[in-house]
């Protein structure tokens, strides 16, 4: 039907990822505004139960592509199957997560189907019947508001954690298996093995308070200052990706899309600008504090409290006062 919305589900070991519920909530809102239906597409192997679960999440239809070869298709074949599914379903708007999986799927689908796409979006809505997105540009210092052409299909990749995962009342959803010829699709590469990184000695995901260091710390010699602050507050030190890339801290400390997703009571971001990859890992924290010298740093958009200033003055002060109290 004209205006229909489709969410591509992301899942792992039989369970939907949080971003899937976020996409369903947004999809529901847009489908309702356009008096259209909302479907969810789930691709994988042995996903009957998952499909049944998704049928109760407020969608009107669940499209299932269940095939052995998709069980470990982290690249080419998954995109092939998604493209073939979209040809059949022909939605007006497709929503995918701007996750490491979605970053591979979105450009592949958009390019193959010739669909206009916007990725790394922080919001998508329907305004006067038009699909409007907001997305960061220039390191996130600016947001562009982009309007898709009316009546042309569109694809939006939405940042994980950027919009809420509001549970939707269940509807009578149709579960439909798509008959795709997966066997004859080109296999562009094959998975040799999956690797799940061990939790490591330090599990920041279990901490109530995380004090995280970003590029703003300047160099590795300043990390003890952050760690001392974390310790004084009874928490653990985390970090953003660049510090791991530099070899300053081990991967187990990394918060973000490619590291850990954390939901502590208090998250203090020190010298972290707030790239979407980082926000994806910590936006669920109950209280977010940002300490940064740049008042325009995107981190201040998600923080509940902010201190604009020199972290080399503020962090030791925080440590000292925390020790006293």
């Amino acid at each position: 039907m004209a205006g229909d919305v489709l969410v591509i589900a992301e899942h792992w070991k039989g369970r939907p990822e949080a971003v899937t519920f976020q996409l369903i909530a947004k999809g529901r809102e847009i489908a309702d505004a356009r008096r259209a239906s909302l479907g969810v597409l789930v691709l994988g192997h042995d996903i009957g139960e998952l499909a049944a679960d998704l049928a109760g999440t407020g969608v009107d239809a669940v499209f299932v592509v269940d095939h052995r070869a998709l069980g470990n298709a982290a690249c080419g074949l998954l995109a092939e199957a998604a493209v073939a599914s979209l040809r059949e379903i022909a939605p007006a708007l497709t929503l995918v997560g701007f996750t490491l999986v979605g970053m591979e799927l979105a450009p592949a689908i958009a390019t193959r189907l010739g669909v206009a796409a916007m990725t790394n979006c922080v919001n998508v809505e329907c305004v006067d019947g038009e699909i409007v997105v907001a997305k960061p540009v220039y390191d996130g210092a600016l947001h562009a508001r982009v309007i898709f052409d009316r009546d042309a299909p569109a694809l939006v990749a939405l940042q994980a954690g950027a919009t809420p995962t509001l549970p939707q009342p269940a509807r009578a959803a149709l579960v439909r298996a798509l008959a795709l010829d997966i066997e004859s699709m080109p296999r562009r590469g094959e998975i040799v093995q999956f690797i799940e990184e061990p939790i490591g000695d330090v599990d920041i995901a279990k901490a109530d308070i995380i004090v995280s260091a970003g590029r703003g710390v300047g160099d590795a010699s300043k990390l003890p200052m952050i760690e001392a602050c974390a310790k004084a507050l009874g928490g653990l030190m985390g970090c953003s990706r660049p510090l791991v890339d530099q070899g300053w801290l081990p991967r187990e400390r990394q918060v973000g899309a490619s590291g850990k997703t954390v939901t502590p009571k208090i998250y203090i971001a020190c010298g972290i600008s707030g790239a979407s990859q980082h926000l994806a890992g910590m936006s669920g924290a109950k209280m977010i504090v940002a300490i940064n010298k740049d008042p325009n740093a995107p981190i201040f958009q998600v923080a509940h409290y902010g201190i604009v200033g020199d972290l080399f003055e503020i962090v030791p002060e925080l440590t000292a006062q925390a020790k006293k109290s």
């Binding site: 947001h143 982009v146 309007i147 569109a154 201040f300 958009q301 409290y305 201190i307």
Partner: peptide, 18 residues
């Protein structure tokens, strides 16, 4: 397939208190 309506610093979230 699209047009850019505006580009501006993002509005600070209502909860963010400096």
């Amino acid at each position: 397939g699209y047009r850019i309506a505006s580009v501006a610093p993002p509005a600070r979230a209502a909860g963010a208190q400096i």
